[in-house]
Amino acid sequence: MLKRFGTALCVAVIIVALTGGGALAGTFPDKNLKIIVPFAPGGGVDVTCRMIAEVAPKHLNGKKIVVENMPGGGAVIGQTYVAKAKPDGYTILAYTSSVVSNPMTKKTSFTHTSYQPIAMYCFDPEILIVPAKSPYDSLKAFIEAAQKKEVSVATPGYSTSHHIASLILEDRLGVKFGYIHNQSAAMQVQQLLGGHVEAGMMAMGETTQYVKDGSLKALGLMIDVRNPDFSAIPTFKEEGIDLVWGAFRGLAVPKDTPADTVKALDEAFKNIVADPDFNDRMQKAGFPVVYRNASDFTAYVGVVAEKLGKILPTLKKQ
């Protein structure tokens, strides 16, 4: 009985497997797309990509986006995979700040120019945050303290965009921080909430709830003008530090992807990012949606890379 059931099942599976394939040539996309997330499931990049995948079929002739996690090597594994993938537009990389910083801090076979950016969908500005009981009530007080002694600053990990933000800040202020590098933003929050460190560099979206309920104090945001939703948080610019920084999240395909495919993707993701369902989810989960199209995003990444190049000596290649 069991054996017969098993045989039936495997025949069924084989039939499904055989008939599912075979796509017809035609307009792009004519089959499902794949977003490679170079991180483990559950993080900000993964979750936002899945939100994109959820609304995608509406804007891609009914084709789906499959999110595939390829963690490892500080995101190098997944990034390398896409850089080497067939440039047909079907393999997309979740393109984050680490694509720019990885080639500068590690030996990689790619640089940020190995990809053709398609769309940026999220920009989370950098925030300087301190425990609720911290003696520093303002950015000014923090800066003064940092100039006198070594303030401990928690980051979610070495060479993350948050670590880089602190390095840039160090450079601008001419100070030195004592770094507490963690493995995740979760441990960083734990250290801040528990008052074990004096300050932390994070993405604004990750801190909103703590700032709202007063368990952490926000000292400054690295943005141009105050955020209307958090008008109480000053910008670094107001203190005379012209510093705009943050974690960007976007999508990119391999460099040699044909121009018309890039155009089709650019168009499709413009609509996806504008989708109200997507915006609703992103907003509720605390990810600020900021859209840039393919050419603007490419230019933006260029600027980021240039900024990073300047502080490169501090993050020496190993």
Binding site: A40, P41, G42, G43, D46, V47, R50, M51, S184, A186, M187, V189, Q190, L193, T208, Q209, Y210, D280, R281, Q283, K284, A285, G286
Partner: peptide
């Protein structure tokens, strides 16, 4: 606290975020 205790509860965090909850 909103701090996931391990990799599995980190996934709960992801699931909550997808539902639009923090």
């Amino acid at each position: 606290l909103g701090v996931p205790g391990n990799s599995t509860s980190a996934l709960f965090l992801g699931a909550l975020m997808i539902q639009g909850l923090r």
